[in-house]
């Protein structure tokens, strides 16, 4: 693989856009927010982020937006991941390593089911946001 130029990158993006339009996967977007605080990183947040980015891309799941945020204030449950999508309750997951991230993709994003053992209770999150 030769070094890509910005021009190549631009062209690939144009081609990609056309393909995506033809795919027409609707416009309900899925938001995945990965907590990248220091203890999250140490516990595998980076690997989880990598799985979400990689799986969404290779499986051609359009409309997935993966965001990183700093510390979510939940050291003991890091890495934490929040998933927001239509048809599912907003969900906060705790202790998400690469394997759990893959489960979230398969069950939650594609299967419409919660990954029960990793659901984190909401009240805790609300307190920490204040």
């Amino acid at each position: 693989m030769a070094k890509m130029t910005l021009e190549t990158l631009r062209k690939l993006r144009e081609e990609q856009k056309e393909v995506i339009e033809r795919r027409d996967s609707g416009d309900k977007s899925i938001h995945i927010i990965v907590g990248m605080g220091t203890c999250g990183i140490a516990a595998g947040a980076k690997e989880a982020l990598n799985v979400f980015l990689g799986e969404a891309y290779t499986r051609k799941m359009d409309n997935v937006v993966v965001k990183q945020t700093g510390c979510m204030g939940l050291c003991y449950a890091e890495p934490t991941v929040e998933v927001k999508m239509e048809g599912m309750p907003d969900t906060l997951y705790g202790n998400v390593d690469a394997a759990v991230a893959r489960k979230i993709v398969n069950l939650h994003l594609l299967g419409g089911k919660l990954v029960n053992d990793h659901v984190f209770d909401y009240p805790a999150r609300d307190i920490n946001k204040e």
Binding site: M4, L9, L12, R13, Q16, I20, F52, L53, G54, A56, Y57, T58, M61, D62, N63, V64, V65, V66
Partner: peptide, 12 residues
């Protein structure tokens, strides 16, 4: 923003 552009960015 979306994972399609990030996918291309990764290849880059």
């Amino acid at each position: 923003e979306d994972t399609n552009t990030v996918g291309l960015l990764r290849e880059f």
